[in-house]
Design a protein around this nucleic acid. Structure first.
Length: 214
DNA sequence: GCGACAG
DNA sequence: ATCTTGTCGC
C-alpha cells in the first residue's frame, strides 16, 4: 500500500492517480455481511479512534465490532479526509474475524472534487465493495428532493452524475450517497436503504458511530 | 478576490 | 469531529 506521510499537494496528486482505478459497477456476489465504519477523536483531536461494526445481512443483527486508536497525524482538510481517517480504520478492520462483503463509509465516495473520497480510497485499498454515505454535501448540485422516505435525485458536478441525494427517512435531512468501489450507484442506494430501519442513518453507521464516539 | 468546504 | 441542555415538532 502507499505511503501516508504526504503533503496536501502530494495527497491530491495521489487521488488523481488512484481515481482511475475506481470500478463503478457491481462486482460482488450476494452479501451476507455488511459493515459500518466511523471515526471519532479523543484528547482534543490528538488521538483518532476508528470503529467498525459488522452486521449480518439482511437481518441487520450486530455480529461483532472492532475499535482502534492511533495518534492523529494529518489535519482535516476538505477533500483530503481519507488521509486523516483511513490509517486508523485499517487498524480497526484488522480486528474483525469476518471480512465484510460491503463497507458503508461515513463520508463521500465519487462525490468528491477528484472523484476519490474516503469510500473510494478505503474500498480500493481493501479491495472491498464500498459505499459513501455522507450526512452533508461536499460538492455537487441537485434538484428539489421529495420529503418521503425512499425519494432520491441525482447529485451532479460538471454535467456528470457523481452520486445521489437520498431521503432515508421522511421529513428529515437527506443522505449523500455515492459509489465507493465495485458497486453501481443504483446498488449503493439499494443497500443503503436495505440497511436502514426507522432512523436517518443506516444501522451499520449507527453502530459504528456508537463505538467510535458516545 | 469571495464564498464553500465530507468529518 | 468536538464543546453541551433544553426544546420544538411529527
Amino acid at each position: 500500500m502507499h505511503d501516508w506521510n504526504l503533503t496536501p499537494q502530494q495527497a491530491r496528486e495521489l487521488q488523481q492517480q488512484l481515481s482511475l482505478k475506481v470500478i463503478r459497477e457491481d462486482r460482488f456476489t450476494t452479501p451476507h455481511f455488511v459493515a459500518g465504519v466511523d471515526v471519532g477523536f479523543e484528547d482534543g483531536g490528538a488521538t483518532t479512534r476508528a470503529a467498525v461494526a459488522l452486521l449480518r445481512f439482511p437481518s441487520l443483527e450486530l455480529l461483532e465490532h472492532s475499535i482502534a486508536r492511533l495518534p492523529t497525524r494529518f489535519p482535516y482538510l476538505p477533500g483530503l479526509l481519507s488521509f486523516r481517517e483511513i490509517p486508523a480504520i485499517l487498524e480497526a478492520l484488522k480486528g474483525l474475524e469476518t471480512a465484510p462483503d460491503i463497507l458503508l463509509c461515513d463520508g463521500q465516495g465519487l462525490a468528491h472534487p477528484r472523484r476519490f473520497g474516503l469510500a473510494c480510497h478505503l474500498g480500493l485499498i481493501t479491495d472491498t465493495p464500498s459505499i459513501g454515505v455522507a450526512k452533508s454535501r461536499l460538492i455537487g448540485t441537485h434538484t428539489e428532493l421529495p420529503a418521503e422516505k425512499g425519494a432520491w435525485v441525482t447529485l451532479e458536478d460538471k454535467g456528470k452524475i457523481i452520486g445521489a441525494v437520498l431521503r432515508s427517512r421522511s421529513n428529515v435531512n437527506p443522505l449523500y450517497i455515492s459509489i465507493g468501489q465495485r458497486i453501481s450507484l443504483a446498488s449503493a442506494i439499494h443497500y443503503t436503504l436495505a440497511c436502514t430501519t426507522r432512523y436517518k442513518l443506516p444501522e451499520t453507521t449507527r453502530w459504528a458511530h456508537r463505538f467510535a464516539s458516545g
